[in-house]
């Protein structure tokens, strides 16, 4: 196959775009797509300070690379979760450090165990009814929101790609989880109650394209899956969507992007479907749907929890 732009041998065939590109034009094309996404959804401008959440994986390191190349004011943040299997968290941190050193890029590290006294697996083990994955999600959301606001960043960017978003959409659609469907968005605006602005600049790129970008660009990323994600439901939904994609190129893309369009036009959900009432946590001050103390602060309290959820009990 030849590059659509120059006729040299292509390195990637993107059937959903009917586009094949050589290495040089692919490395040019991906940042262009990201730039158009940033503009289309009014994510941020060159005047904004952007905090990019990096895990050491291909998506977030590539996002960091692309935003630096596009000339944005961007800093990385790595959260060391203390996952011990084959030193997963430490190995991931080293990928982040190596990237930062090579690109002369600013970043900070939050080490969960050093900061709060316990790693994610430790706290998940202590808390009944909490899995490592739900604890990890909760801690990351809290820390990222807190640092973005405290350090005066205008926006927090994450490396979710189109496959990530389509898999979550698929999962929520199967359950008709209207609250989640209302809130899944490329941009979550800042709220006066203490929520930082959050954006996903990679939502128009397939996971395959992000892996190819990291490979062609020579970004050294953590290749192994998180040891806890084995058999995670999102992986299963991604496989199902890929089967669909194989039969019908562009299926994933239209599933997700047409959803955004239909919702924006008001054809899917009433405008107020996204608004849960938020309270202020009495301990940390961050917004929470729980009355009193937020789930994050309750993670670190050693008191026995009131019976709040019964579905997790054995």
């Amino acid at each position: 196959m030849k590059c659509t732009k120059c006729g040299q041998p292509a390195v990637i065939n993107m059937r959903q775009h009917r586009l094949g590109l050589c290495a040089e034009h692919f490395l040019e094309w991906v940042p262009q797509v990201v730039q158009r996404t940033i503009e289309k959804y009014d994510m941020f401008t060159p005047e904004d300070r952007v905090l990019v959440a990096v895990s050491g994986g291909k998506d977030s390191l590539s996002l960091w690379d692309i935003l630096l190349r596009l000339g944005y004011q961007v800093e990385g943040i790595y959260i060391n979760l203390g996952i011990p299997h084959d030193s997963y968290s430490d190995a991931s941190q080293r990928k982040v450090e190596a990237f930062a050193a090579e690109h002369n890029a600013a970043y900070r590290v939050v080490n969960v165990k050093q900061q709060y006294g316990e790693s994610i697996p430790e706290v998940a083990k202590r808390k009944r009814g909490r899995t490592a994955c739900s604890t990890c999600g909760l801690v990351k959301r809290h820390v990222l929101n807190e640092v973005t606001l405290r350090e005066g960043f205008g926006v927090l960017a994450t490396g979710h790609n189109l496959d990530d978003e389509a898999a979550v959409l698929f999962q929520n659609t199967l359950r008709w989880a209207t609250g989640y469907l209302a809130r899944q968005a490329p941009v979550l605006p800042a709220s006066h109650g203490g929520l930082a602005r959050k954006v996903k600049p990679l939502i128009r790129l397939y996971e395959r394209e992000m892996a190819a970008y990291a490979l062609v660009r020579g970004i050294d990323y953590i290749y192994d899956e998180c040891p806890y994600s084995q058999g995670a439901t999102t992986l299963f939904y991604k496989q199902l969507l890929d089967q669909l994609e194989a039969e019908s190129p562009g299926a994933k893309q239209s599933f997700y992007l047409e959803f955004l369009r239909a919702r924006a036009d008001g054809r899917l959900l009433p405008a107020d479907a996204a608004r849960p009432t938020l309270n202020q946590c009495q301990q940390c001050g961050q917004p929470t749907t729980a009355p009193g103390i937020c789930s994050f602060c309750r993670l670190w309290s050693t008191q026995e929890e009131p019976l709040e959820r019964t579905d997790g009990d054995e």
Partner: peptide, 19 residues
């Protein structure tokens, strides 16, 4: 294996599936 789920490389260089 599904072509959607893997990238093929030779000597570290990416290849399209028709190669």
């Amino acid at each position: 294996l599904r072509p959607e789920s893997v990238l093929a490389t030779r000597d570290g260089k990416l290849l399209t599936e028709d190669v």
